[in-house]
Computed example of a mutant assay.
Amino acid sequence: MPRRSLLAMLPALLTACSGVDLLNATVATDSYRRTEGLAYGEHARQRLDVYQPKDPVSNAPLVVFFYGGSWSSGERADYRFVGEALASRGIVTVIADYRLSPAFRYPAFVQDSAGAVRWAFDHAADYGASPARLFVMGHSAGAYNAAMVALDARWLAARGLQPSRLAGWIGLAGPYDFLPIVDAQTRVAFDWPATPADSQPLSHASRASPPALLLAPVKDSSVNPQRSTVAMARRLKAQGVRVESELFDGVGHVSLLAAMASVLRSRAPVLARVTAFVQAAG
């Protein structure tokens, strides 16, 4: 398929599995090394892949990435374009699966996210990364997971770590304040209306929070960027936390993340912003 035709089709297809496959088909295969299917727990969903820069590195930054899907869908293999993008910039990247609704409810997916971070912290040196340069990152529901791990000390504390060990966290189009819940899938995942008030990341923003990079579309039909991204940035800044934030035109909820792939990188400088933040904060 001609490259121009592929570019024209991608925006319309990105919300479907075929779109993810098409996007991953454009990803270089010679810019990273991948180790697949590593266990960070006993459940079948507690597995992760590690993406390393092609050339050996030492003391590299390490990003643990969580994908979205309303806490009810998603596979780590679908996000090879994220692993390749970051690894090609010298960042060791972990992409983790986690337990999903409806079989599991909050806080199972947050507990799993903390477990994946603990694994990354323990094994960083094995892959040329430094545990002192550890970041959590997520998109959509995955950004919620990353925020909870970074802001609510309960989850890492259960794994023998503290959020202060994180060099920073990165949220892409994340939902950080969404009570009362109106989305049907989210209601199931959070057992609405019995959802605890402290399930909301915004309520955990404090002066102890790690530095943050918060990016979102200007217009997002899935997550209100003003209520979540803008409000989170404002709350953290008020607490004296170093925050970088930006809302982008020309992308939507899904294409914000897809802009990390080389064929869509001109739509928004998401990869450039993430790379600069990681290199500076680390």
Score class of each variant (00 low, 15 high):
181 I>T: 03
228 S>W: 01
161 L>K: 02
167 A>G: 05
98 Y>V: 01
107 P>Q: 12
150 A>E: 05
138 G>V: 09
166 L>F: 08
133 R>P: 07
213 L>A: 09
89 R>S: 06
94 V>Y: 00
180 P>S: 11
181 I>W: 02
130 S>I: 11
148 M>D: 01
216 A>Q: 03
155 W>V: 06
211 P>T: 04
228 S>H: 15
183 D>H: 08
216 A>E: 01
124 A>R: 12
207 R>K: 14
169 W>G: 08
135 F>S: 06
150 A>L: 00
199 S>V: 03
189 A>K: 11
109 F>N: 06
174 G>N: 08
122 D>H: 05
89 R>N: 10
215 L>Y: 01
194 A>T: 01
182 V>T: 15
194 A>M: 00
97 D>G: 11
175 P>N: 09
183 D>F: 02
159 R>Y: 03
197 A>H: 07
219 K>L: 01
155 W>F: 15
192 W>S: 13
133 R>D: 07
160 G>F: 09
123 H>E: 09
134 L>P: 05
216 A>S: 14
109 F>Q: 11
164 S>I: 04
166 L>V: 07
204 H>Q: 10
107 P>G: 12
179 L>W: 02
133 R>H: 14
107 P>R: 11
198 D>N: 14
104 F>H: 15
200 Q>R: 05
206 S>T: 07
127 Y>M: 12
128 G>Q: 14
121 F>A: 15
90 G>P: 06
126 D>Y: 08
102 P>W: 09
101 S>K: 08
213 L>P: 12
188 V>E: 15
